[in-house]
Design a protein around this nucleic acid. Structure first.
Lengths: 190, 190
DNA sequence: ACAACTATACTGTCTGGACGGTAAAGTTAT
DNA sequence: ATAACTTTACCGTCCAGACAGTATAGTTGT
């Protein structure tokens, strides 16, 4: 029962993300979400008692999903830099569900900046993980910020990178991480 | 007269940005902007014939202002990397008017993703400038993306960086640019 | 010089539609 | 039976944009 409920809720969140992605954040209305999820508006409001609650659900789902994917990637990797590597890889992963879930950010920005609060908290934790990577903190932060920059650019569909450059950037970021694993402080050639 | 008109339009754009920043993108209504700018709604619609036109104006103003500030910074600097340096510095500059103008992006995201088109075009040009910096293209792109990442994070008020770390990151980015001016084209290559 | 006319820059009012949210009456599963 | 779920019908509010009117400053004809 709780399972079914969660499934239904997930279905509603997915529908909401699809509406945002296909029609833009301004078209995220309860009616549109209900129609996309093939329920009535009342049905939607039974599960999420307000539009705000719906977007909160979207945000929570996005953060949980992102964190889970990172965790599952670092299971077999014991390097301190594993987290950062997973973060970068995930940011560059054009996985459909990632893109879909990130609509939550757009929805929050569009509707109420207060909804971004859980994201701010999550970022604090991520920054700690970044600085615990073993790289020089500033370098590690630059790597994380670059991944962020790309992610935002692609989320808003304004990234100017060719596929080749994009691949090269990812490769270079991973190389920067890897190099620090082998204790290369001056970043010079060897 | 054309001068006065432009002043008035600038005033309206500023009012619109202030509304977005103080009350969120969802509260960007013609009425709110008119009130903030101390005109009637009709008066606002005289200058910007639709809400869409208003946001287009905001976007154009933001891009022009950003480009101008970069241009004015690189006047005395002939290094090919001058553009990238200026871009990074400007991204890190907590200048009030920059922050205010960047509300245009939020307004566009919230209202109609189509409005982001001019930004996409601008980014293409910026990426060209980035790759003409003399740095290895991937490194130059990483620097630009990191600046972007920080800018977005701060725009959405979710940046987890302490002031110290932030300063250190800026310093490091500038050092990366500077290093490539002197020697060491190959230092990023394996 | 001055009246007639036109353009610019607004103001205040109105309306049609959309949207968030409520209420209450079913329906289904246990 | 009853709790969980879903639907339909509806309300009040808000807002984009239209519109009609006003005031002031130029422009032109005489």
């Amino acid at each position: 029962m709780a399972e079914k409920k969660d499934n239904k809720k997930t279905k509603l969140l997915k529908a909401a993300s699809q509406v945002v992605r296909s029609r833009g954040a301004s078209q995220l209305t309860l009616e549109a979400v209900a129609k996309q999820a093939e329920v009535s508006k009342g049905g939607l409001l039974y599960h999420y008692r307000s539009k705000k609650a719906l977007i909160e659900g979207m945000i929570a789902h996005m953060l949980a999903s992102f964190s889970e994917e990172i965790e599952s990637q670092i299971k077999e990797n014991k390097h301190p830099s594993a987290w950062l590597e997973a973060f970068v890889k995930l940011s560059f992963d054009p996985n459909l569900s990632n893109l879909e879930e990130s609509a939550a950010l757009v929805a929050a920005i569009a509707n109420d900046p207060e909804l971004l609060l859980p994201i701010r908290e999550q970022y604090k934790a991520w920054q700690e993980a970044t600085e615990a990577s073993g790289l020089a903190p500033a370098i590690a932060t630059i790597v994380r910020l670059a991944a962020d920059g790309l992610w935002y650019n692609e989320l808003f569909d304004i990234s100017p990178l060719t596929a080749e450059r994009r691949a090269e950037v990812l490769e270079t970021l991973l190389k920067i991480i890897k190099e620090s694993e082998n204790d290369c402080q001056d970043c010079a050639e060897s």
